[in-house]
Design a binder for these strands. Structure first.
Lengths: 211, 211, 211, 211
DNA sequence: CCATAATCGAGACGGTACGTCCAGTCTTCTG
DNA sequence: CAGAAGACTGGACGTACCGTCTCGATTATGG
């Protein structure tokens, strides 16, 4: 096709993972505010130039380095919607306690309020990427008969978005803003609240076509 | 008796408000990342030294400057718990859209993950200070007969904390992380979910003494 | 005359010497560059205001604090002009080795190149105040017959000035600029040179009226 | 063989001279006390970082900037030792009247009393570098038969050091400490004294092996 | 024996420069 | 060309002093 010349030195693929590893290691040791591009480069055995050739900024680099940590979140079948919710809340809380995520998640979000490209990057690499968890939980609950499916596909998608914001938002707020532990008692109470809310949504979307 | 030391020149109270005003104005114009201590000092007609004599860091200063904006949140009686919730969600969303808060709230929270003193500062100046809104909403709903009071005072306090984290967390996550609008449709759906959750909590705390 | 009223609180005389002592002590410990007005004030148990009420600047204060150290210079009669010169050179060198003088003499001179008032202050408090040493040495040598008196008083005064500049200048330059020790060998050689110069001046001013 | 590292971007040589030029220009305009690193950097069109990468302090920078001015000192052959001395004293006095040198020479010397590295720097860049003037004058006088050569090389070197300290010290002391003009009358009298001293040294080193 | 007035310790104030640090870019040479 | 090395501009950082100021408290003397 358009391929004219291809004789240049290709980018080292090994470097990519070395850089992301170094980024995470530095986040653990020094935290976001003390993480510098120079530090990461030195630790990865790479020149700063190489970093900037692949990521536009420190924030974008950290988003990629942290994003894959969120892939650890799973939704093992605990037999009931209540169990599934409690499980995912617990594993999310555990994730937020790790130094890599704790010090950098809010930082990149803060940065993103001024940088649209970064905002998109976060949404794609973290938010949208994890929404399947909510969808899976819903599907499983429907199969168990705990919930009914929404009458309209659009409504279902909006509900997934909402539930994701409620779970993620509440846990993050509890852990990082209120700065109180996301322990068993809190998780139980939160799950109770969420279950009641879900069945309420279920009935409402059943009867009315408002959503 | 209580007099220990009162001989030196007292701190100018006028400077305090000038600094906070300048901080807010600079946040509006330049946003958090471009706000510098030097800039604020110059704008307030004050020396940088004076800033550092009163606030230990840029973050602490911004917390104080922004905290009073949260006092604008009110809970006008709309006649029903549903209306009250929709009202407070709307006004919180509006607050989060203001440039002063949007660019700085997440930034100071991010900073606080590494600075315990700042974490306490945020909790006292913003979080605890606004929890009365949830309490008021609950009391009003109880008076209306929409909710019953919790059997134990400790349970009630924990419920207030939870509800605050759910509301604030969900709205903040929707607005700043998912970066989608907190519009009427979302608010209605969220309120539906929350109302269902509240009545569920109500019944649970009624029957069981688990909480 | 103009005296109308004199009922105010007088300045504490004790403070003066406490301040000068503190200044010297701080010079010994920290040296000129790290000596600050605040430090001296604190050490003297005095407010900064009090310092500035009495001395216009750090330099002026140090000049006064150091000036009296130069009063230690003496000219004990060693029986010959050669001995007298070697003696005064040695004691001057010893004085310049003390940390109070070493670190501050050049500093105040440097400052004085930009501050005429300070220049006058140094000249009066240090330079002119020690010229009597040269005069005494000359007088003594004349009484011994080692030198003859200058034919004109003005010539004598100019010679005293010159000799003072030569001795003080050479020793200071050796000690502080060349930064080599003013030891016995150097002193002997310098004294030989100066003696030869003095007799040369003596003959010249005898025969010619040029000076 | 000698190649150890030569892969990085080399330091700009243009920057060096731009910085030194800016330093001298600033010394002329503002004098030593008002010269700041920031000012010099801005004037040289260079970042402050670049200054600190090359010179450890303001003093070290000024030493280099001023040192080459001393290279202007020359010793034109005026036909006699007397003439040569009067000539070099005059040109040294002229040099000390320039604002660059007047305000900064004593300042760096003062600083050097606390900073051994700076002391060495001054000795090498200014003192040792100009001693050839004394050596030249001596050599020339010997060729003319005005002086004889010292019997031992070590003695000759010590005499050169001494003469340098006497000339430089006396002129500097007259000009900057006593703060009186180094005019023709003073120069004539000083030269008379020095000539007498030199012949005295000459005879002494001839007869005795003390030196 | 009180009123007056300058002094005192304390420390906040506006300024200015410091020397450090990092972001992001540029320039060199090597593979 | 990609990459390592590291110099470069630019700008904010937080600190340290300067010399001035504003306090309330402390002495002296003159009336």
């Amino acid at each position: 096709m358009g391929r004219v010349r291809a004789m240049a030195r290709p980018r080292s693929t090994a470097a990519d993972s070395a850089i992301l590893d170094a980024t995470r290691a530095t986040l653990v040791e020094l935290g976001w505010p003390k993480l510098t591009m120079g530090h990461v480069a030195a630790r990865a055995g790479v020149a700063k130039t190489t970093l900037y050739r692949r990521w536009p900024s420190k924030s974008a680099l950290v988003v990629d380095a942290v994003a894959i940590l969120f892939d650890e979140l799973e939704l093992p079948d605990r037999g009931s919607l209540r169990g599934d919710i409690e499980g995912v809340v617990g594993s999310f809380a555990t994730l937020l306690e790790r130094p890599e995520t704790k010090t950098s998640l809010m930082a990149v979000v803060a940065e993103s309020t001024r940088d649209p490209a970064l905002r998109v990057h976060i949404r794609e690499a973290i938010v949208q990427r994890q929404k399947h968890l909510v969808q899976e939980g819903r599907d499983r609950a429907q199969r168990r008969g705990e919930l009914t499916s929404a009458p309209h596909p659009g409504t279902a998608a909006r509900q997934v978005d909402l539930i994701f914001d409620v779970i993620a938002g509440a846990v993050v707020h509890r852990a990082l803003v209120s700065a109180e532990p996301v322990d068993g008692a809190w998780t139980t109470m939160f799950t109770e609240l969420l279950l009641g809310g879900l069945s309420s949504l279920d009935e409402a979307s059943d009867s009315a076509s408002a959503y």
